[in-house]
Computed example of a mutant assay.
Amino acid sequence: MNASASLPPVSSAPPRDLTRIRAVVAALLFLPAAAVAGVLTLASERASRCVTYGEQCASGLPGWLFGWGAGLGVVALVVALAAPAVRIRRVALAVQLLAECAALLVIVSHA
């Protein structure tokens, strides 16, 4: 008499989607990254000569590119937080990261 009760099948929980958390973390880290990029840019010799003497001032990338990069990053953040589908949130997170990198590139390019 070896009767044992059968255990119910173990159902694994669906994997958690951390896209929303990653989008918020990326948005929060953008501000310190922009500050660090600005300090690194001002620490260069060319930028210090530009600020001090008005010589060797480079135009860098256009300023509208920073505006579009930052704006697109905010829109992508909102989509990543509000979209119901996981795939849309992941694409929005990728767009957000690329837009933030473009905005940081504009800051660094002014050196």
Rank of each mutant, 00 (worst) to 15 (best):
W64L: 08
G38V: 01
A111E: 00
Q56A: 12
A76E: 02
E100S: 11
A43D: 13
I107Q: 01
C101D: 05
A103H: 02
Q56R: 09
G73K: 04
A99I: 08
A34Y: 06
A34P: 01
A47K: 14
A83I: 02
V91I: 12
L28C: 09
V86A: 15
L29K: 01
V91A: 10
N2V: 15
G60N: 07
R22Y: 09
A13I: 08
R89T: 04
L72N: 07
E100N: 10
I88P: 03
S11H: 10
G71E: 03
T41M: 08
D17I: 04
A23E: 00
A23F: 06
L105G: 08
W68L: 14
L93E: 01
L98V: 13
G73D: 07
V74Q: 06
V51Q: 05
W68G: 11
C101V: 12
L93D: 00
V39A: 13
R90S: 07
P32M: 12
P14E: 11
A37D: 00
V24H: 00
S12G: 06
A3E: 10
A83C: 07
G71L: 10
A85R: 15
S4H: 12
L105N: 01
S6M: 12
L77S: 00
P32G: 11
L104Q: 06
A111H: 00
A5R: 03
A34E: 05
P62I: 02
G63C: 03
L29T: 08
S44P: 11
S44C: 10
I88C: 14
C57D: 03
I88V: 15
P84A: 13
S59F: 09
N2A: 15
S48N: 13
N2Y: 11
A85W: 10
L31V: 15
L93M: 04
S59R: 11
S109A: 07
S4K: 14
A94M: 03
L42A: 13
L7N: 12
L61V: 07
G67K: 07
L29F: 08
G54F: 11
V10E: 07
P14F: 06
V108A: 11
A43L: 15
P8W: 05
L97Y: 02
V75C: 08
P9L: 12
P32Y: 13
L65W: 01
W68I: 11
W68D: 00
W64P: 00
W68V: 14
T19H: 02
V74H: 09
A43W: 12
P8I: 03
A35S: 10
V25Q: 00
I88F: 08
W68Q: 02
A37T: 03
C101Y: 06
G60S: 06
S109K: 00
A92Y: 03
S44R: 09
C101A: 14
A85K: 13
L104R: 05
E100I: 09
A58N: 05
A85Q: 13
G54H: 07
L28M: 08
A70Q: 08
D17G: 02
A70P: 04
F30P: 03
M1N: 12
N2D: 14
V39P: 00
S11A: 14
V39C: 05
P32E: 11
T41S: 08
A35Y: 13
G67T: 06
A83F: 06
G60K: 04
V24G: 02
T41D: 01
P62M: 04
